[in-house]
């Protein structure tokens, strides 16, 4: 089994925002979704997920409310706010520029 990759803080923020883009979700759901979509490559540690959620909420990029989960249990749902959506756009372009830059360097180095 391949080892999963630890996430840098900034990256985690981006992933959380992206995951919440289509619909509100609870913490567990966010962790699951990231793991699924990344095909188990990215594993989110609870120890960083929840502090990150609180931090993002303080910054006003996400908001939270209590709702009923699948089997009717109370769960805290996080939702992307308007400024959160803007932040997501900013971070996405930022990330893309960053990753192409890294890819370029790697290519140049290997050739």
């Amino acid at each position: 089994m391949e080892r999963s990759v630890d996430l840098l803080q900034g990256t985690l923020d981006l992933l959380i925002l992206k995951t919440l883009d289509p619909e509100p979700m609870h913490g567990w759901g966010i962790a699951q979704r990231i793991q699924q979509v990344s095909k188990d490559v990215l594993q989110v540690q609870q120890g960083s997920l929840y502090p990150a959620l609180y931090r993002l909420e303080r910054q006003g990029w996400i908001s939270s409310e209590w709702g009923a989960s699948e089997n009717n249990r109370r769960a805290k749902y996080y939702r992307l706010t308007k400024s959160g959506r803007k932040q997501l756009e900013r971070e996405t372009t930022h990330w893309q520029r960053f990753s192409t830059a890294v890819a370029d360097i790697l290519q140049a180095a290997s050739s």
């Binding site: 120890g47 929840y50 502090p51």
Partner: peptide
Amino acid sequence: FGPVEAIKEECRQNRA
């Protein structure tokens, strides 16, 4: 899950 109390404390500090 990891050390619950530590995580909680970190959440608290991040709380608005």
